[in-house]
Design a protein around this nucleic acid. Structure first.
Lengths: 127, 127
DNA sequence: AACGAAAATAGTAACTGTTATTGTTTTTAT
DNA sequence: ATAAAAACAATAACAGTTACTATTTTCGTT
């Protein structure tokens, strides 16, 4: 039987109030500001759990640490080679890709992740 | 000034003779069969280096360990939730996606990775 | 072919992100 | 209010990877 916790509520609130696709450490730091004794394990445990429940999204962006996203409608991302940021791409999600992939492959497709690499608007042009 | 090494030559030969998108440990095991004193550090060092030089491909498939691919013409992959395998998808690479992404985003796109998740042909249907 | 500087290696220690463990606290149905 | 279940804080353990150091290999020069 599942029970609420102030820690998980705060975590979700923090994650939903940013667009920065943070990693566990960033979330931990924000949590500590309001709840100084929260432990890193709790952050990891709840991030995993919420992701498994489909309440948040876990992103694998090829950098060392996993990133998380409070926005769960399917969309694509760019990992910026300049500043390391992960930003949402303003382009339509293409559910057709799944069918296209299933067509000749013999695979059972459940979903896809499309990750662009390059430079975010702030870093483009600069270097 | 760059120098060849028997270790790196063997590594590349091994990687090019398989289609299984192995991780560092797998490569290490195959290396040891033919070169019993090779060290794991050497495997990691050369995998990174070859990937940086664009001679091989480093894949980030959301599992714990990075995977590597001796085939560098751009193509897409599926990470199988059943057996953990990473398989090539028989579908055309879409260079247009880069332009589409660049269009409204203000980003400078260098490339993209498209990863499907689901089940590979062997695992599809089974469970 | 031998020499020597630069590059690469083997072996090992260290580091990073994450998960597991354990004893305590919090939650919630009764 | 009670007590069982769930979640927690703190910390240890773990996996994958990188860094270090002393030794070996490569290869241009002699």
């Amino acid at each position: 039987m599942q029970k609420r916790s102030r820690q998980r509520d705060l975590l979700l609130e923090i994650l939903r109030s940013t667009t920065c696709h943070p990693d566990a450490d960033w979330v931990f730091a924000r949590m500590r500001e309001q709840m100084p004794n929260v432990s890193l394990g709790t952050v990891y445990r709840n991030l995993s759990r919420l992701a498994e429940e489909g309440i948040i999204l876990k992103l694998d962006v090829g950098q060392n640490a996993d990133r998380f996203d409070g926005c769960i409608n399917p969309h694509y991302h760019l990992a910026c080679k300049g500043c390391g940021a992960v930003v949402d791409m303003p382009m339509a999600y293409t559910p057709n890709l799944n069918a296209a992939a299933e067509a000749e492959s013999g695979c059972e497709i459940e979903g896809h992740a499309l990750l662009f690499y390059g430079k975010c608007p702030s870093c483009a042009g600069s270097l």
